[in-house]
């Protein structure tokens, strides 16, 4: 029960946008942050519920200030390089979503104050779909998408 309460407390403080600051200031130990893997968000089957669970809202404004670098055609869906970069100021988190994957939310990154709004990784894509990047600035969400054509799927056997 104590654990459950702590989770609620953590979620509450996340909504207030103070966790990033607390982490930056070294107030929260990494262990506490580690305990926070967001099962609801990562098991969500559609984008709105994944966003609500991870970012607290699914209302994201489309912004061309978010740049997604990904191939137009990915021959191998198991390894699709994706880079998300933005000119927006005060970014606290970035999420990467593959719209047609069984569980669309792939990764979310929490950025401390010194981190620049740039992340790059390689993701799996089940089939041709939009790669959606969600950027959180304060309480607002911004998004952009890029279509990637997948010739061989990367999920499932």
């Amino acid at each position: 029960m104590i654990d459950a309460k702590r989770r609620i407390l953590l979620k509450g403080s996340l909504a207030a946008g103070s966790v990033g600051v607390a982490v930056g200031a070294g107030l929260l130990t990494p262990r506490l942050v580690l305990a926070e893997w967001n099962e609801a968000a990562f098991h969500a089957k559609d984008i709105p519920s994944a966003l609500t669970a991870s970012m607290g809202s699914d209302a994201a404004e489309t912004s061309d200030k978010i740049k997604i670098k990904a191939p137009d055609i990915a021959e191998n869906g198991a390894v699709v390089p994706v880079t998300v970069e933005t000119d927006l100021e005060g970014v606290t988190s970035i999420a990467i979503i593959a719209a047609e994957n069984q569980t669309p939310l792939i990764a979310s990154f929490e950025l401390a104050e010194s981190a620049l709004p740039f992340v790059s990784t390689r993701i799996k894509m089940a089939k041709t779909a939009d790669v959606v990047a969600i950027v959180k600035v304060g309480d607002k969400l911004y998004q952009n998408a890029k279509n990637v054509k997948v010739t061989i799927g990367g999920c499932g056997g």
Partner: peptide, 9 residues
Amino acid sequence: QVVMTAAWS
């Protein structure tokens, strides 16, 4: 100091 934490699926 923590600079970034990533949560992955």
